[in-house]
Amino acid sequence: MNDQGPHHDHETLKQKGQQSADELKEAAREQAESAFDRQRDSVAQHTHTFGSVLQRAADEFDRQEQPFCSEQARKLADHTERFSQRLRDKDLHALCRSAEAYGRREPAMFIGGAIAAGFLVTRFLRSSPAKASSSDVSTESKAPDQTL
């Protein structure tokens, strides 16, 4: 009969598997980029807000006749605003390349920043469930009183 039958079926399955894997990889990439874009925009907005707070602090230092503090707050506000704008202008790949280049130029600062970011993320993640579980606990503690 046909000697190529089982081999041909194997190759067809292999191609279909590869095609499915490629489609899955593309869908995951698109989802990651979409999530990154949302988070990037959120971080950029928070950074912009922080810059505005620093500008107001600089204005307050001016009113209190504290020129050194005012100047430092304005510099930090300007850096913060530039960072916010650069962040908005970059996609995931560009941001990764920038982080890699910075890590090569300033390895100690990069590692220190990564550690600090890790602590902040950990703190954020620990505080988020605590709020949700404390509201769940208060809801649960009210529920038995209402049923009695």
Score class of each variant (00 low, 15 high):
Glu65Pro: 00
Glu65Trp: 00
Glu65Gly: 02
Gln66Asn: 04
Pro67Arg: 03
Pro67Leu: 04
Pro67Ala: 05
Phe68Glu: 07
Phe68His: 00
Ser70Glu: 03
Ser70Tyr: 02
Ser70Trp: 01
Ser70His: 02
Glu71Cys: 08
Glu71Thr: 10
Glu71Ser: 08
Glu71Gly: 13
Glu71Asn: 12
Glu71Val: 07
Gln72Asp: 12
Gln72Glu: 06
Ala73Thr: 02
Arg74Met: 05
Arg74Ile: 01
Arg74Trp: 01
Arg74Cys: 03
Lys75His: 11
Lys75Thr: 15
Leu76Pro: 09
Leu76Trp: 06
Ala77Ser: 12
Ala77Leu: 06
Asp78Lys: 11
Asp78Val: 05
Asp78Cys: 07
His79Pro: 05
His79Glu: 12
Thr80Trp: 03
Thr80Cys: 07
Thr80Ile: 03
Thr80Val: 07
Glu81Trp: 04
Arg82Gln: 14
Arg82Ala: 12
Arg82Lys: 15
Arg82Met: 09
Arg82Phe: 07
Phe83Pro: 08
Phe83Thr: 08
Ser84Glu: 10
Ser84Met: 02
Ser84Ala: 13
Ser84Pro: 06
Ser84His: 06
Gln85Ser: 12
Gln85Lys: 13
Gln85Asp: 10
Gln85Thr: 09
Arg86Phe: 02
Arg86Ile: 00
Arg86Gln: 09
Arg86Ser: 06
Leu87Gln: 03
Leu87Pro: 04
Leu87Cys: 04
Arg88Glu: 10
Arg88Pro: 01
Asp89Gly: 01
Asp89Ser: 06
Asp89Ala: 08
Lys90Arg: 09
Lys90His: 02
Asp91Asn: 11
Asp91Val: 03
Asp91Tyr: 08
Leu92Asn: 00
Leu92Val: 04
Leu92Cys: 01
His93Phe: 07
His93Gly: 00
Ala94Gly: 07
Ala94Tyr: 01
Ala94Gln: 12
Ala94Asn: 02
Ala94Glu: 14
Ala94Phe: 00
Leu95Tyr: 01
Leu95Thr: 00
Leu95Ile: 01
Leu95Ser: 04
Leu95Trp: 01
Cys96Gln: 11
Cys96Thr: 11
Arg97Thr: 11
Arg97Tyr: 04
Arg97Asp: 12
Ser98Cys: 04
Ser98His: 08
Ser98Asp: 13
Ser98Trp: 03
Ala99Leu: 14
Ala99Tyr: 09
Ala99Glu: 09
Glu100Pro: 03
Glu100Cys: 03
Glu100Val: 05
Ala101Tyr: 05
Ala101His: 08
Ala101Leu: 09
Ala101Cys: 08
Ala101Met: 05
Ala101Glu: 09
Ala101Val: 03
Tyr102Asn: 05
Tyr102Pro: 03
Tyr102Glu: 08
Tyr102Trp: 13
Gly103Ala: 14
Gly103Ser: 14
Arg104Glu: 15
Arg104Trp: 06
Arg104Gly: 14
Arg105Trp: 11
Arg105Ile: 14
Glu106Met: 12
Glu106Lys: 15
Pro107Gln: 13
Pro107Ile: 14
Pro107Tyr: 11
Pro107Cys: 13
Ala108Glu: 15
Ala108Met: 10
Ala108Tyr: 06
Ala108Gly: 10
Ala108Asn: 13
Ala108Thr: 14
